[in-house]
Design a protein around this nucleic acid. Structure first.
Lengths: 335, 335
DNA sequence: ACATCAAATGTAATCGATTACAACTAGAGC
DNA sequence: GCTCTAGTTGTAATCGATTACATTTGATGT
């Protein structure tokens, strides 16, 4: 493998000139530039990144720590992050923390060791509660999750508003007994539950919330339980796509007809929600935009480490489908 | 940030001793070991990875180049790869080549520059056709795609067999006019089409194949076209999850009843396939195992660069659901 | 008491770039 | 002709580890 000194010899110049040409710095004559480029091409020279990183103290690498890449929301976000990162000459190291604070700490530690340019993170609840971006040696941008007082750049959905509107929609359509299954592991789930709560209380309706671990089976179980009990709800809301899937499974398992017997709504406009029977009403998140906004914030902070904390709040898009069609006047009580 | 020389001074030993202790090499007294560890902890020392990589010529980084992480198959595979990689002290750089040979070449180039320990790759068709792992400066393992003569380690499904069994199942259930929508961009799609063809020919049935770009909209369009024409097929087969989704969309759009009016089957046991109306019959791929097998092959090849080429062929699992229920004796022709 | 040897430790070269600084060149101004 | 400046170019220090090789230490055998 050719080294910079080989290129220098081949071109008959010094290593400094080679370095300058290849870095595109000014102060090099056209002739030298041409000779160096020719030599580099002739020798198929490629700089050793380890050496460059050691000397320059820059890695051009960003870390992306999500809870689980298999969650379609994060899949999409990570895709956006990767696209943008490579466009800006950055590599991406991807990590799955599985909502586990220990794994999360491990990966943040890893990022420090890797000396990354910056990190995009969807934090667990315990980490978020005292989170200060300044505590880390590198720029951090949060995605999907953040609380009012969090001292960090962040890109989030307006969760409270979105959940409020979704719940309001159900109320308008005539549903009264509405239960909400929400993720207990993230701030986002809590905020969406809060939006649901506010809408319900405003309409003087009784809250029925279930905090769940973010897993399909959890939501399925809760659905079977709720709908199998006495006083089953008329409508179910899921705070994210995984839980929505679980609800759909449970409803299907019970053989209930949607929305006549049970209305369903949730978050994340996943490819399949329009396929299950009457089509599911959801709040769509602009996932790709979320990813893109996150990396833009990050790149700007890398360039300007001391700028004020910024927050991008995006609005969810309510997509109404058959699963929340207007409720029949009153359910015939016992026929 | 503490450097190794600081640790050495603090412990009253040489840098060599520190390095030895931290690398876990033998030939260090218990006392030195303890002092070094204490010093390292006291100073919160963390080795500079760039320096280490420069000197040791190892990066402990593997590259994962897939066509699109948003394809659930690759999502799952990449999850497995990441889990295993971090367990073995390797970082993962993730790249999406989008079935684009240029992007693919760019990323392979990047991997070379990064001096990765190895790469896991799902190659495009043109790359695969002349692929030799030995042409690259690093170990490579292929996933999901490989041809008979390919000179590279690979982990693949027994595509021909799986597609054959799936088609055979439809034939047994009484379907005759069976169309197959398959991905034109990958060897895998072609092999599955081949399995379909063999099963059809064995039963003396007429082939009806559509080579498509791997996109949901393509399959949806083809479905509308096929089912809208004269002589519509009685059953549709998709060679992967994306195309299956497109078929499901198309069928739903036309308001056809499955399987009475159209049977559907495909590949990939995605979370939603049991939810759409009668449940879709599919061949399930052991995706996590595929990812795990890939990285195991890779780690072994890294350890033993000159060992013989190996291939892991996994068997698909036919999961029968309502979408391929036995066909009614003969469709009443016009009532 | 001394040669021998293994274990422990230290010294310094090395990986391959970037970059501060010095040195050189040529033309402008006086 | 001489100084000054601006534009090029080169030399060598530097980043922070690993590791080949040299050296010291201490135990063992005779």
């Amino acid at each position: 493998m050719a080294r910079i000194i080989d290129v220098a010899k081949h071109a008959g110049v010094s290593v400094a000139s080679v370095s300058r040409v290849l870095a595109g710095l000014p102060g090099v004559s056209e002739e030298t530039r041409a000779r160096v480029q020719a030599a580099a091409k002739a020798l198929d020279y490629r700089p050793d990144l380890a050496a460059r990183r050691l000397r320059s103290r820059r890695t051009d690498t960003i870390g992306l720590i999500v809870s689980d890449i298999r969650n379609p929301f994060f899949t999409e976000v990570s895709r956006a992050v990767e696209d943008m990162a490579y466009e800006h000459g950055q590599r991406v190291i991807l990590c799955n923390a599985d909502e586990d604070p220990e794994k999360e700490a491990f990966y943040l530690e890893l990022m420090r060791n890797e000396n990354v340019s910056g990190v995009i993170l969807s934090p667990t609840l315990p980490l978020l509660s005292h989170f200060k971006a300044a505590d880390y040696g590198f720029p951090i941008v949060l995605v999907d999750r953040c609380e009012r007082g969090t001292e960090a750049d962040a890109v989030v959905l307006d969760n409270l508003d979105a959940a409020y509107r979704l719940t309001e929609h159900l109320i308008e359509r005539g549903y009264r007994k509405i239960a909400c299954l929400y993720g207990a592991a993230s701030a986002t789930g809590q905020q969406r539950y809060e939006g649901y709560s506010q809408a319900m209380m405003r309409a003087n309706l009784t809250l029925q919330g279930r905090a769940l671990r973010p897993a399909v089976a959890e939501a399925r179980g809760a659905t079977l339980e709720l709908l199998g009990g006495r006083q089953p709800p008329e409508a179910l809301i899921a705070s994210n796509g995984l839980l929505l899937l679980g609800i759909a499974e449970g409803v299907r398992e019970l053989g209930l007809i949607c929305p006549a017997q049970i209305a369903v709504a949730g978050f994340d406009d996943l490819p399949w929600v329009r396929l299950v029977d009457p089509g599911l009403t959801v709040v769509a998140q602009p996932t790709y935009d979320i990813g893109r906004a996150a990396i833009e914030l990050l790149l700007q902070r890398i360039a300007q480490p001391s700028q004020a904390v910024r927050r991008v709040v995006l609005r969810g898009d309510l997509i109404v489908r058959g699963s929340t069609a207007a409720r029949a006047a009153t359910a015939p009580a016992g026929a």
